[in-house]
C-alpha cells in the first residue's frame, strides 16, 4: 500500500493548526502534541489502522533545563503501509499526568506501567497503574535524573564482604 503520511499531515495540520514533520528516510510523521489533544489524536490514528503501539517511553530533560521537564514519547506503526508516527507530549514536573491510551491499544498496559515505574508519570485512566520492573517497596523513580544512580534499596540485609588478601 502507498504511504498515508503526506495526506495525513495535511489533514492534521488543518485540524490542529500546528506543524507535523515528515521524515522521508524513516517514513515517519513526527510532532509535539499538547496533552489535552493526545487521546483524540491517538483515537484518530487507530481508526486509520495504525494498529501497533510499538513503544511508550519518556525523557527527562532536567540536566538540559528544558521546560516542561518531561516528554512522553509514543511510537506507532502501520502494519499495512509500514508508516510510522512518533508523538511527543511535554509533561510538567508539577503535574506529571497524561491520558492513558490503554482503551485504544491494550499493549499500553505494560508500557505505561513501565513509564510509571521508572519516571513516575501518571497515566489517568489506566486500570492498574503499579510498578512492573521494580518492587513495591522501592522509593523514588530511578530514571529521573535527580535519582542518584548507585542509590540501592535492598530488600534484605546484605552481607559485609571482606577482602581476603591471602587468596
Amino acid at each position: 500500500m502507498p504511504t498515508l503520511l503526506p495526506e495525513l499531515k495535511k489533514i492534521l495540520e488543518d485540524t490542529y493548526g500546528q506543524e507535523f514533520i515528515i521524515n522521508e528516510a524513516l517514513k515517519e510523521l513526527y510532532a509535539f502534541v499538547d496533552k489535552n489533544n493526545l487521546f483524540s489524536l491517538m483515537e484518530k490514528f487507530s481508526t486509520i489502522h495504525f494498529d501497533f503501539l510499538m513503544d511508550v517511553t519518556a525523557v527527562d530533560y532536567l540536566l538540559q533545563n528544558k521546560k516542561p521537564r518531561f516528554e512522553v514519547v509514543y511510537h506507532l506503526f502501520h502494519t499495512k503501509t509500514y508508516d510510522r508516527i512518533r508523538i511527543k507530549v511535554p509533561v510538567t514536573e508539577e503535574i506529571p499526568e497524561v491520558a492513558s491510551v490503554y482503551p485504544i491499544w491494550k499493549t499500553a498496559y505494560f508500557l505505561e506501567r513501565e513509564v510509571w515505574d521508572l519516571y513516575g508519570i501518571k497515566f489517568t485512566g489506566h486500570p492498574d497503574l503499579r510498578r512492573i520492573l521494580l518492587y513495591e517497596e522501592f522509593v523514588g523513580f530511578p530514571l529521573r535524573k535527580d535519582y542518584y544512580i548507585r542509590d540501592e534499596q535492598p530488600l534484605i540485609g546484605l552481607r559485609e564482604v571482606e577482602a581476603n588478601p591471602t587468596v
Binding site: 520492573l133 521494580l134 530511578p142 535519582y147 544512580i149 548507585r150 542509590d151 540501592e152 534499596q153 535492598p154 534484605i156 546484605l158 552481607r159 564482604v161
Partner: peptide
C-alpha cells in the same frame, strides 16, 4: 551494572 537495580556481587547475599 553499577546501578540501583543490581546487587554488586552475589557474595553480598550468600557466601
Amino acid at each position: 551494572y553499577q546501578n540501583y537495580a543490581t546487587v554488586a556481587g552475589c557474595d553480598r547475599i550468600i557466601p
